[in-house]
Design a protein around this nucleic acid. Structure first.
Lengths: 134, 134
DNA sequence: GTTAAACCTTACCATTATGGCAAGGTCAAA
DNA sequence: TTTGACCTTGCCATAATGGTAAGGTTTAAC
């Protein structure tokens, strides 16, 4: 039984918002979905799987652009896993860079926060540091 | 000697782009700067210091919204360092959250990447995992 | 059978920080 | 005077998501 879901139910089933599902369709990530006579979008289980795929990839931080590639690879029986792994590795590298950047901020911010009394006096090492010419 | 710089030189002196300096002015972060008769913006050393302050706060990841507060505190001789520290601590918490989130992605992505052969075969654990109903 | 709630549709606006481009004015040096 | 390097404003774009508004549809209750 090809159960067809409207967008609200598809959203619940996939964990995405209806708003985003429409957006993905409009930006070419998803094919234009079949409609009822009234124009309501309808989703079958295959499409729900695709939505879940997108949600999981998003939760790993993949961009929609990368997800488009991942979807194409997923649906291509002649793909080479090399291509998938390369995308994954690139994304991993970006994640690692961002972590490093944030950790640097974290370190400096921790030092700054520790060096500020945080009381009723105006003296504040944080502001002093930010104001330093450097 | 109150040396006055045009926006390009102010940009070089502060490490910001001219575009962003204009944007900061337009969004209310900076007071509208004095102009020449021809309408060119002019910056004195105090304003250059303010620009540097902004750049350093940006490099620590503070939002422009927070920077507005920091600038106000900086310029208020009756500030309480408590207020500054609170902003810093909040920002630090956000950084820490983002790091945690990214580290989670990093861990999952590492496992996924490791589980993919990355060769010419179509078999790919990464795609399998993304496609899993979960 | 009508009505009301809960859906759905599209379209537009907002966010955040930054960059690009275009059309045009200004200034300085050759 | 011309030219190149500036400056101006204004508009558009990015990425992913949310909000709102105006209006059509479906379903359940009365």
């Amino acid at each position: 039984m090809a159960t067809l879901l409207t967008i609200g139910d598809a959203a619940k089933a996939s964990g995405l918002s209806a708003k985003m599902i429409r957006h993905y369709e409009q930006s070419g990530l998803l094919r234009r979905s079949p409609r009822t006579d009234a124009g309501y979008r309808l989703y079958n289980s295959e499409q729900i799987n695709q939505l879940r795929f997108i949600r999981q990839a998003r939760s790993l931080g993949f961009s929609l652009h990368d997800i488009q590639s991942l979807l194409e690879l997923w649906q291509d029986p002649r793909r080479e896993s090399r291509a998938v792994k390369q995308l994954a590795q690139q994304h991993l590298n970006e994640i690692t860079s961002k972590i490093a950047e944030l950790q640097h901020m974290q370190q400096v911010m921790t030092e700054l926060a520790d060096s500020c009394r945080g009381d009723g006096s105006p003296h504040c090492h944080i502001l002093q540091q930010l104001a330093k010419p450097n």
